[in-house]
Design a protein around this nucleic acid. Sequence first.
RNA 1: GGUCACAUAGCCAAGCGGUUAGGCACCGGUCUGCAAAACCGGCUACAGCGGUUCGAAUCCGCUUGUGACCUCCA
Length: 488
Amino acid sequence: MAELILYNTLTRRKEVFNPLHPPRVGIYVCGPTVYGDPHLGHARPAITFDLLFRYLLHLGYQVRYVRNITDVGHLENDADEGRDKIATRAQLEQIEPMEIVQRYSDHYHKSMDQLNVLKPSIEPRASGHIPEQIEMVAKILDAGYAYISNGSVYFDVEKYDTKNHYGKLSGRVLEDLLSTTRDLDGQEEKRNPFDFALWKKALPEHIMRWNSPWSPGFPGWHLECSAMSTKYLGDEFDIHGGGMDLLFPHHECEIAQSKIANGKDSVRYWMHNNMVTINGQKMGKSLGNGILLDQMFSGNHPLLEKSYDPMTIRFFILQAHYRSTLDFSNEALQASEKGLSRLMKSIAMLPGLAVSNETTINLDIWKTNCYNALNDDLNTPILIAHLFDMVKMINLLSEGRERITKPDLDILIQQFHQFTFDILGLREEQLTTGESELLPKVMDMILSLRQEAKKNKDFALSDRIREELGKIGISIKDKKDGADWEIG
RNA sequence: GGUCACAUAGCCAAGCGGUUAGGCACCGGUCUGCAAAACCGGCUACAGCGGUUCGAAUCCGCUUGUGACCUCCA
């Protein structure tokens, strides 16, 4: 089988993926800051790296997938008088910061379950790794690449840049940063505006605080990922992922910190998913165009014409390549919904196909095409195009216009399931109506009565049965002999 | 302002120098008492202007437009 090729943001090219310690693979992905309900933007990286996780597992790797939860409320911004997102939220709702963290972590997990996102192997929390972070700050101080200022500790970017390239991931040059960094309050503690905090002294009103050798305070914005990835994946590991918006400064700072603390570059492949847009604009809280996942699932949002199943969202996201922006619109979502339904119907049809003593479709080429798509930097749109090619074949098989042997059919079923369910992570939506085992029997009876009516040319009655069933949400599809029905 | 992306048929979206991507919608046809589904066929685009090449949506330049990052953000 062809090799897996991934796009490495660091080198800006596609590279053959070779794990450091095969068959083991270590992945670290930046997870959510849990201070609000999960939204569409959370779905993209979660699904992108879930796909990667699933595919690596499918290829037989032993994957340790670490996705953190950020539960230390980093500052809104330097000018914000030491208030952080989680504490602000806690004050607003008059509860403990950790209640906020718990509530939104739970919510995030629920939404991820709905999207059929596998749980990571380890889901560490920043607040649970304060000692590790303090230790890392100390290491960087010892190495001489950080300085203490008024109880806070800052990373000395200028010094780092003399022997390293600060900006190599995001393609930035230090001099440019100097001129483009905004003049914010709270900068006077820093030697240079582009220096970043490793440890921040807490102001009296700051609730979330921990003791440290330097001050009661909290870890810097970027430190948790360096500390926790090192702890669980070692000082050098395979893949680090996250959204493109984290490229700078977050991941750039991680590279610098880890390099100094660990003495070497930690990450071998950097992967970044692109952003979600709504009507062509980036979705963001500040822009007021955010759509929560629950709103997608319920349709309860002014921009939405209807509700969309979690699997429709997942399928929609997978229909675009992860490095392209993806624009949400009702029209596009409904197209995905219909496409997904056709795909699922086709899969349901597979076990019932008549078998023959010869096979007239080329399964090997199809399978190779599918794997080639995945191996080419997880090109799911291409993979899905191939799945639809096979949908067409399955329909032709069901009409007897193509033929397949029993062994080949078994192979096809297994492979189609692997691609669709195991790797893409799609699943049949559970029926939301209270369907019982009785319903199919009842339907059989009704349909046989209708068949009788049709036989007697009593079309008024047969149409009325179909119409009435339609009203309660059951649609009828006549076939040569008898009829099929489905909910929805 | 600096840096970097992107611009593909009605909509979404692949494409990485040379064969129909794919989905949805739409229009014909087959099937059907009618409809739906399914199948067959049609719709064959690449922002504009130059350049390189036997050949460019794909490479280069310019123009226009959109977006992202530079501040928390997935």
